[in-house]
């Protein structure tokens, strides 16, 4: 339903560049790893599912390898020239404008708010997910390599790993539902570009930053005319 937009040809030329190649690569590699972790984690967590699937040892091995691999895509994507857009967007996720606070106070209902590249919900979600993944990595490592640690650490790590997994699962579900409900935004993460009209409507401040605020201006990226 909401995914129909994906079947249209990608807007290679028109529109505004929202995510560059590195950012999209990082998003989808990380999403794949997290998907594997959620799937294998669910099997390890629910006994009924585990007895259905069997091969618990293999599932556990995959879970551990995927978990320990989590930092690798970030470390590859962040440095140097290729990480410029990513680092710039991390800066944008960090900063909350006065409009963002108004958006939060009105729970997104205040129509006069002019949002930048990300809405405050996305900013909070990214901070939460980043902290949750770090927490899962740390507690998961204690569970995997428990022998040097006191027994109570293992108990604590089990507790935090379980509850954080639950919270993270809810956040990921919300993230996917919102993306499916906004196909143009989703196409932005798949193909890298979004229609200028979408940006003007949903992220006016970001749109104006890119286009210089002129509604009639040609979008960035289509400067070279076709034949």
């Amino acid at each position: 339903m909401g995914l129909r937009g994906l079947h249209q040809p990608p807007p290679r030329e028109g529109g505004l560049e929202r995510f560059d190649r590195t950012e999209r690569w990082l998003h989808w590699v990380n999403a794949t790893l997290v998907g594997v972790l959620v799937g294998t984690g669910a099997v390890l967590y629910w006994g009924d599912l585990a007895s259905l699937v069997g091969r618990r040892a293999l599932i556990k091995e995959i879970h551990v390898i995927a978990g320990l691999s989590l930092p690798i895509p970030f470390l590859l994507a962040l440095p140097g020239r290729r990480g410029r857009a990513l680092r710039r967007d991390l800066g944008a996720l960090n900063r909350f404008s006065p409009d963002d606070f108004r958006w939060l106070r009105s729970r997104g209902a205040d129509r006069s708010v002019r949002l930048g590249k990300f809405n405050p919900g996305q900013k909070l979600n990214s901070a939460f997910v980043a902290a949750a993944l770090l927490t899962m990595l740390a507690t998961g490592s204690v569970l995997k390599f428990f022998s040097p640690f006191p027994l109570s650490w293992r108990t604590g790590a089990t507790f935090v790993h379980d509850w954080t997994a639950l919270a993270l699962g809810l956040a990921i579900t919300g993230h996917i539902l919102l993306a499916v409900g906004d196909p143009e935004a989703l196409r932005g993460m798949v193909f890298g570009r979004v229609p200028a009209a979408w940006a003007r409507r949903k992220r006016p401040r970001w749109h104006d930053d890119l286009t210089g605020g002129d509604v009639s201006a040609e979008p960035v990226g289509s400067a070279t005319p076709g034949p």
Binding site: S97, A131, W153, G156
Partner: peptide, 30 residues
């Protein structure tokens, strides 16, 4: 880029809370 650096604070706060749970989690679990 202007604005208040809320994202970093939320991230650091939650990460510290989560990771330190290795130490306080056994009491909370009980």
């Amino acid at each position: 880029m202007d604005g208040t650096p809320v994202g970093r604070r939320v991230f650091l706060g939650l990460a510290a809370f989560g990771v330190s749970g290795i130490l306080w989690g056994s009491k909370a679990a009980g």
